[in-house]
């Protein structure tokens, strides 16, 4: 069936939401900086599957194009984030994000 039904779309959306929230939990619960960034990558994946499902649903390529941009952002973020992680690790010899809390009020 070339055209996807709404019911099918919803299952993909639900999967995307679940992945997104799992990433969110990892982002706020873990202390390891690398894992925090890995969690954001999970969130990216959740969004990507939603976009591609929409692309399939509407039978056009916009969703897939967005995923290309999303991958670009993910790559840029990963390079900068890992650079920062290395820099911060050099300063304090730890990956614990709670060590960096100078912004407290």
């Amino acid at each position: 069936m070339p055209v996807m039904s709404q019911a099918v779309l919803y299952q993909y959306l639900a999967l995307g939401a679940v992945l997104f929230v799992l990433g969110l939990i990892g982002f706020v619960a873990r202390r390891n900086m690398i894992l925090i960034f890995l969690s954001t990558e999970i969130m990216f994946q959740g969004v990507a599957v939603i976009l591609i499902a929409f692309s399939r649903y509407w039978m056009n390529m916009d969703g897939q194009s967005f995923v290309i941009f999303l991958l670009t952002i993910a790559a840029a973020e990963a390079s900068l984030a890992l650079g920062l992680v290395i820099l911060l690790f050099r300063r304090r010899e730890t990956l614990d994000v709670d060590v960096w809390s100078e912004m407290q009020g």
């Binding site: 679940v18 992945l19 799992l22 990433g23 990892g26 619960a29 894992l35 969690s39 999970i42």
Partner: peptide, 10 residues
């Protein structure tokens, strides 16, 4: 698989 592995990641 996706949900289980994502859970394992975090």
């Amino acid at each position: 698989i996706a949900v289980i592995s994502a859970t394992a990641v975090i």
